[in-house]
Design a protein around this nucleic acid. Structure first.
Length: 255
DNA sequence: ATGGTCGGCAACCGA
């Protein structure tokens, strides 16, 4: 079973990238973040002949999540339990007996901002969400744009970025606390190499200089992680009309 | 050098 994640930064702007990648790679599940489309404008027609079902929740301009699958999608819900639920940031579903939680975690703006406090709270609330709905012994995947680089190896310049909202100690501790539920970082379980990035800022020519970050993740509970056989990063083709600043991250499970 | 570039969507916000 192949499970993948991609931050689209507008699904409509990158529809050919997504349909093309699906056709070529045929994952069982593809989770998307930052669809940036309201539900009544979701580009369903583009996927009509793709062989994929899709569930989604969006809003105007920002955020938005979607789950694609070539199998039946059941037990669908959106958002955290308490207010603000942030439905366009969390999609949950069960596919082939695996529970999928697809999140677009708030980016956090700057360390001294209200938005960063909101981000840290979001991790706390997500930790409670996992505790109250699931057990670490079940087949559960938490994936998406988590907006955290877990370790120094996961950013291009750890010394320079230590105060950043996606790398500072507070946010890494917040991530660790959620992972303590019983999640394994599937990519790192298979690859310990440095410079394995999933995101490059559009600004400052960061892709050319490989000034990247590993912010997109596939976390799996131990029983599931033990069955993972590979995990890899596909860069979106820069030759595409509209390339993306994020990659497709895929995990393969022997299920 | 504390900038830069995208996307949405119509003046800036968010990343």
């Amino acid at each position: 079973m192949k499970i993948a994640t991609f931050n689209a930064n507008s699904l409509r702007a990158r529809i050919e990238i997504v349909t093309g990648w699906l056709a070529e790679n045929r994952p069982d599940v593809l989770c998307i973040q930052e669809t940036k489309v309201q539900d009544h404008d979701f580009p369903l027609e583009a996927f009509e002949n793709s062989g994929y079902n899709v569930v989604f929740r969006g809003q105007k301009k920002y955020n938005g999540v979607a789950i694609f699958s070539n199998s039946r999608i059941s037990d669908v819900s959106f958002g955290l339990d308490d207010e603000p639920k942030d439905e366009p940031r969390l999609a949950k579903a069960v596919i082939k007996g695996v529970t999928i939680v697809n999140t677009y975690i708030p980016q956090g703006f700057e360390p001294d901002s209200e938005k960063f406090r909101y981000k840290l709270d979001w991790f706390e609330r997500l930790g409670r969400y996992f505790q109250s709905h699931f057990k670490p012994t079940e087949k559960l995947v938490w994936l998406g744009d988590l907006n955290v680089a877990p370790e120094a190896i996961d950013v291009h310049s750890p010394e320079d970025l230590f105060g950043h909202v996606c790398f500072c100690q507070e946010v890494r501790d917040a991530l660790k606390k959620v992972l303590a539920f019983g999640f394994v970082d599937v990519f790192r379980a298979h690859c310990t190499e440095p410079e394995q990035y999933t995101f490059w800022d559009y600004r400052a020519n960061s892709l050319r200089r490989n000034r990247g970050w590993r912010l997109d993740h596939i976390m799996a509970t131990k029983p599931l992680a033990q069955r993972s056989t590979a995990c890899w990063i596909d860069k979106t083709p820069r030759s595409a009309q509209r390339p993306s600043d994020h990659t497709f991250l895929t995990a393969q499970f022997d299920l």
